[in-house]
């Protein structure tokens, strides 16, 4: 298990390899579809400091609002591939070092990870309760009114948030490799080539 304290340096990220298990500590930001188009279209400055060297988490949380404080109740990852058209440009623009979600991403993002020094982190789908417990504090929220709860950008402080590196900054994608291997086995079992 590799501990990563956010924000991280480019060197720390370039050291990571596909298959590495990491535990995240520090401040990161959530963002889904609306947040991605917003960052592309308007290049907002208010998220710059937050995202620099940190992680953008593809997550639409279930949140609770009690005594004027927000907390995360369920915080599993959502499918990342929907952000494929935007992700590479956002990594470049904001100096993000990690993108986290589930299912992996495509070639354009993989190229951006190599070019700018970032990784794709895969969180465990369905582990909503435990992942929410790793969110120790909600520091704030951006565009809550306009985007709604799942799509807003939540600024969260995490401790021991577990994920696996499935795309690194050296051009390797675990998803591509697993698929290639499983295809070879499947073809053999099926009897086609």
């Amino acid at each position: 298990m590799i501990e990563l304290n956010l924000p991280v340096t480019e060197a720390q990220i370039r050291d990571l390899n596909v298959g590495d298990e990491v535990s995240l500590n520090g401040i990161m930001v959530t963002g889904r579809d609306t947040a991605h188009t917003w960052m592309i279209d308007e290049k907002p400055d208010e998220v710059r400091e937050l995202l620099k060297g940190s992680v953008l988490y593809h997550c639409g949380p279930v949140v609770k609002h009690e005594n004027d404080e927000w907390s995360f109740v369920a915080a599993g990852p959502t499918t990342s591939i929907r952000e494929e058209p935007y992700q590479g440009d956002i990594i470049k623009e904001y100096g993000i070092r990690g993108v986290m979600g589930k299912g992996g991403m495509g070639g354009k993002t993989l190229q951006a990870l190599t070019d700018h020094g970032a990784v794709y982190l895969h969180a465990v789908g369905g582990a909503a309760t435990i992942l929410a417990q790793s969110v120790k504090k909600v520091h704030g929220v951006i565009k809550l009114e306009e985007f709604g709860v799942p799509e807003a950008m939540w600024i969260i402080e995490v401790e021991g948030f577990k994920a696996v590196v499935t795309m690194d900054s050296k051009g390797h994608s675990l998803h591509a490799k697993i698929k290639e291997n499983s295809e070879a086995v499947a073809k053999k079992l099926i009897g086609i080539n």
Partner: peptide, 21 residues
């Protein structure tokens, strides 16, 4: 990952919260 999933399931049962959102 499998252990993590199981831990989540046990935690969900104890707290009576959904296993997955």
């Amino acid at each position: 990952v499998l252990s993590f999933m199981l831990k989540n399931a046990i935690e969900a049962e104890t707290n009576s919260t959904p296993i997955c959102q």
